[in-house]
Structure formats: structure tokens, C-alpha cells
Amino acid sequence: MNYAFDFSAPLAYAPDLLAGAWTTLTLSLASTFFGFLLGVLCAIANTKGTRWMARCAGAYIEVIRNTPLLVQVFIVYFGLSSLGWPVGAFTAATVALVVNVGAYTSEIVRAGIESIPKGQLEAAECIGLSRWQTLLHVVLPPAIERVYPALTSQYVLLMLASSICSQISAEELTAVANRIQSDTYRSVETYLIVAVAYLLMSLLMRGLFWLLARLAFPRRRRLGTPL
């Protein structure tokens, strides 16, 4: 093996790599926030909504979970343009990721909602809470708390999957890496640097979610339950 590693060439593009990493984090956090909201709404529709609401939510979940993310990105990016609504690569990537992670979030949150004991619901009814008060104060907080570790893992996977958006020229980390390796012809070194960057971003996101859990779920902190 005569290959000589040379990281100096790709590291000369450090500002571009940092800009790509920042775009990846921005894209991931925006998609996480809106995907969480969409997922919670679909989980409510699936478990507490009317029959037609449950069917619509179920159809959306099945379609998204059984089609590739890359195809979904292409449909949003090229489909909206074909309909006369051209959008930028970053916007299309965000929309596609929100739609994708919303379906997975919905199923995770649905499992949390269905884990709430019926006794708690009956107690809420006995003290005169309305249906929406019961949902907001009795059902959702403990449901989300129970499935929070699964949600955090899903959102870290979302950040890693955002690399697919390089296929529509969204200037996230992988797209920047593709450009750098084509300029420097140092593919191995470039992608090793990018792999380390993704590892650091994964640890950063897990740290942010851990801090959020300590603020949002003080009971778990008191009990010493893993966050």
C-alpha cells in the first residue's frame, strides 16, 4: 500500500466545511422542530381524532414510511417547480425532511399516547377536565416524556440522513465535501474529515437534547431516569 495521506488540501477548505456543517445543523434543527409539531398533530389525529382524520393521518404515515427519502426530496424539489412554485434547494430539503420525519415522529408519539393508563383519563374526566385539557395536560406530557429517547435518536438519524439533500445541490456538509474532493482529488481524506464532522454534530445534538430533557422533564432528573 503506497497511498500517502495528505489532509492539507481538504483542510484548506475549512471555512467551506464549517459553512456546510452550519447549514446541516440549521436544516436538521428546523426540520426537527416542524417535524415534531407535524408528528404530534398526526398522532393526535390517529388516536383521538375522527375516523376520517385517522384515515388521512394513517395514509400519510404509510406512504412516507414506505418510500425512500431521496424520492421524497426529488418530488418536493422538482414537483413544486413543475407546478409553478419554484423553491430553493434549502427550502425544498427542509420541507422534504419535515414531511419525512413527521411520519416517524407520529408513530413514536402515538405509542406514547397509547401507553397512558386509562385510569388517568378517567381521573381527568372525574375532575371535570375537557377533552382538550385532558389531552394537553394529562396525555401529551407523560406520553412525550416516555418516548423522548426514541425521538432524540430519530432526530439524530434525521441529521445524518440530511446528507441525501446534496443530490439537489443543497449546500450542506456532504455537498460541500463532494465539491472539495472533486477539486483536490483527495476523496479519502475529505470524507474522513466529513465523517468526524458528522460524529461531532451527532454528539452536539445529543447534548442539546439532553439539556432540553433536563429542563422539560424534571421528574426524570429527580428519579435518575436516563434522559
Rank of each mutant, 00 (worst) to 15 (best):
H137C: 09
H137I: 08
H137D: 09
H137Q: 12
H137W: 14
H137F: 15
H137P: 00
V138D: 06
V138Q: 04
V138N: 10
V138M: 04
V139P: 05
V139G: 01
V139A: 12
L140Y: 10
L140C: 11
P142S: 12
P142F: 12
A143Q: 12
A143G: 07
A143H: 10
I144Q: 07
I144P: 05
I144V: 15
I144A: 12
E145S: 15
E145G: 10
R146G: 13
R146C: 11
R146D: 14
V147M: 05
V147H: 07
Y148G: 03
Y148S: 08
P149M: 06
P149I: 04
P149D: 08
A150L: 09
L151T: 01
L151P: 09
L151A: 07
T152I: 08
T152A: 11
T152L: 07
S153C: 11
S153G: 14
S153T: 15
Q154A: 15
Y155W: 14
V156G: 00
V156Y: 03
L157Y: 10
L157E: 10
L157F: 00
L158R: 05
L158G: 08
L158Y: 03
L158C: 00
M159H: 05
M159P: 09
L160Q: 12
L160W: 02
L160K: 05
A161K: 04
A161E: 10
A161T: 03
S162Y: 08
S163M: 04
S163H: 04
I164N: 04
I164A: 11
I164D: 07
C165T: 15
S166I: 06
S166G: 14
S166W: 00
S166C: 09
S166T: 06
S166P: 00
Q167W: 06
Q167G: 15
Q167I: 13
I168F: 01
I168D: 10
I168Q: 04
S169R: 09
S169M: 12
A170V: 12
A170K: 01
A170T: 14
E171R: 09
L173G: 03
L173E: 04
T174L: 15
T174I: 14
A175N: 15
V176E: 04
V176K: 06
A177Q: 09
A177T: 07
N178M: 14
N178S: 11
R179I: 11
R179Y: 13
I180D: 05
I180M: 04
I180F: 02
I180K: 00
I180C: 03
Q181L: 07
Q181E: 08
S182W: 11
T184C: 08
T184E: 07
T184W: 06
T184M: 03
T184A: 02
